[in-house]
C-alpha cells in the first residue's frame, strides 16, 4: 500500500473550474460524454496566458489553483522551485497542434510554418509551459501511456518524495478527446468520455486541516473491488479531487473506489483526512 499527502487541488471539468460541483467518485461516469467548457483564465485571476494553447491555458489554471489551495505562493522562489517536481499524464494533447502544423504548411508552404506550432506537437510542451509559468525546476516528467494511469503518476510522485529529491510534487492529468480524424488510430482499450484537466499537489509531512491522505495498491484479486465503485482510469484524478473536496468539507470521512486499468492493472484507492 502506497500513500501520499494531498495538500492542493485544481480542476477544470465539464462543471467548470473548481471542485465544488464535482460528483462523488462513484457518480463521475454519469456525466457521460462531457467536454470541457470554454473558460477565460483571467476570470479566475490567471492573466497573461493568451499566447498558450487551450490545453496549456487550462493546465496553468489548475496548477495555479492547486498551489493556491495549498497556500503556496507562485511563481515559486528558486529554492522552493528546485525542490518541486512536476508529473504530467497526457496522450492526446499534441494532436490538435499536429493538425495545425499540416494546415499551416498547406496554406503557407512547408518552409513557412509558424514556428510556435512545432513545440506544441511535442508531448512535454504542456509541462514545459507550466514549469516556466510557476518556476518549477525539479524533476519534470511527462507520461504518455495509452491508458492514462493515475497509479503510475502517483507512484512516480511517491518515489520522488521518498527519495528526498523533492518536497512537493504536482501531478497533472490531461484528459481530452482526440480530434475526430484520428479517432480510429488511437488506442481503444478504454477510451475516456469525460474531459478534464486536474492538478493534485502532494507534499511531504503536511497534516493540515485542508490535507487528505491518499492510499492505493495494485490488486490481483478482483473480488477486492466488489464492494467499491469502479471508475475509468481517465477519471482517476477527478475521483481524487472529488474525494478531497468531500473530506475537507466533512461531507464524508472516507472514500474508496477501484480503477480498472486492464493492461495497466487494477488499483484500489482510499482517501481519508490527513489528520486522522
Amino acid at each position: 500500500m502506497y500513500s501520499l499527502t494531498l495538500a492542493g487541488v485544481g480542476v477544470v471539468s465539464p462543471a467548470g473550474v473548481g471542485t465544488e460541483f464535482l460528483p462523488r467518485p462513484a457518480d463521475i461516469a454519469t456525466w457521460g460524454q462531457a467536454r470541457l467548457p470554454d473558460i477565460d483564465p483571467a476570470s479566475y485571476g490567471w492573466d497573461g496566458l493568451k499566447r498558450l494553447s487551450r490545453v496549456a491555458r487550462y493546465g496553468s489554471v489548475v496548477v495555479g489553483e492547486a498551489f493556491r489551495s495549498a497556500g503556496i505562493q507562485v511563481p515559486l522562489q528558486p529554492d522552493i522551485g528546485r525542490r518541486t517536481g512536476l508529473i504530467v499524464c497526457t496522450n492526446h494533447s499534441n494532436l490538435e497542434p499536429i493538425i495545425s502544423i499540416y494546415q499551416d504548411a498547406l496554406q503557407y508552404g512547408v518552409n513557412h510554418v509558424n514556428p510556435s506550432l512545432f513545440p506544441e506537437t511535442v508531448m512535454n510542451a504542456f509541462a514545459g509551459h507550466l514549469s516556466i509559468l510557476f518556476q518549477i525546476q525539479g524533476t519534470n516528467v511527462t507520461l504518455s501511456d495509452t491508458i492514462p494511469s493515475a497509479a503510475s503518476a502517483f507512484l512516480y510522485a511517491r518515489d520522488l518524495l521518498a527519495a528526498g529529491m523533492t518536497d512537493t510534487v504536482i501531478c497533472c492529468m490531461v484528459t481530452v478527446q482526440p480530434p475526430s480524424i484520428f479517432e480510429h488510430v488511437t488506442h481503444k482499450e478504454q477510451s475516456s468520455e469525460v474531459e478534464s484537466i486536474v492538478a493534485l499537489l502532494f507534499r511531504k509531512g503536511v497534516e493540515a486541516e485542508t490535507s487528505t491522505l491518499l492510499k492505493w495498491k495494485e490488486i490481483t484479486n478482483l473480488s477486492e473491488m466488489n464492494e467499491v465503485p469502479i471508475i475509468r482510469p481517465s477519471d482517476a484524478f477527478l475521483a481524487v479531487a472529488s474525494a478531497h473536496q468531500g473530506l475537507i468539507h466533512r461531507k464524508t470521512c472516507e472514500e474508496q473506489w477501484g480503477v480498472s486499468g486492464r493492461s495497466n492493472g487494477y488499483h484500489l484507492f482510499s482517501m481519508t483526512s490527513a489528520q486522522e
Binding site: 512536476l86 509551459h129 516556466i132 518556476q135 525539479g138 524533476t139 519534470n140
Partner: peptide, 10 residues
C-alpha cells in the same frame, strides 16, 4: 540527475 530550466519552451 534530472532538472528543469523553467526558462524557455525551446
Amino acid at each position: 540527475g534530472l532538472s528543469s530550466d523553467a526558462h524557455h519552451i525551446t
